[in-house]
């Protein structure tokens, strides 16, 4: 069923897209650089392409939700990201929304199953 598989993949990606931002913000409560952040997300079951993650980090920083700093580690300069105070507030609001959506969906599923 290649067409069904393609459709599933497309819908799955759409479903994940918004939640990845939430996961990145939550994971950056602890300072990390891109590579270790990607590994941490993969360990959580959220694989993310570098070509998606790195531009996303820059965008979130431009929006004031992250702060970054270049530092040397293991004889190489790396850019470390962490959540800004504005990012903390935004994450809290987004988590509330996430829980609300989750509760609504749970209610719908309970009624339909």
């Amino acid at each position: 069923m290649p067409i069904e598989d393609d459709l599933y993949e497309s819908l799955r990606m759409e479903l994940r897209r918004g939640s990845l931002v939430l996961a990145v913000l939550a994971r950056l409560r602890q300072e990390r650089y891109g590579y270790t952040l990607r590994q941490a997300l993969a360990d959580d079951g959220l694989e993310m392409e570098e070509s998606t993650l790195y531009p996303l980090l820059r965008r979130l920083e431009t929006q004031g939700l992250l702060v970054s700093e270049w530092r040397e580690e293991d004889r190489r300069r790396k850019r470390f990201y962490r959540l800004s105070p504005q990012g903390e507030t935004m994450l809290a609001r987004l988590l509330d929304e996430w829980r609300s959506i989750s509760a609504s969906l749970a209610g719908i599923f309970d009624k339909t199953t």
Binding site: G34, E50, Y54, R76, R77
Partner: peptide
């Protein structure tokens, strides 16, 4: 480019 270089070297 510096950040991408770091990412590629990590890989």
């Amino acid at each position: 480019v510096a950040e991408l270089r770091g990412m590629i070297l990590d890989r």
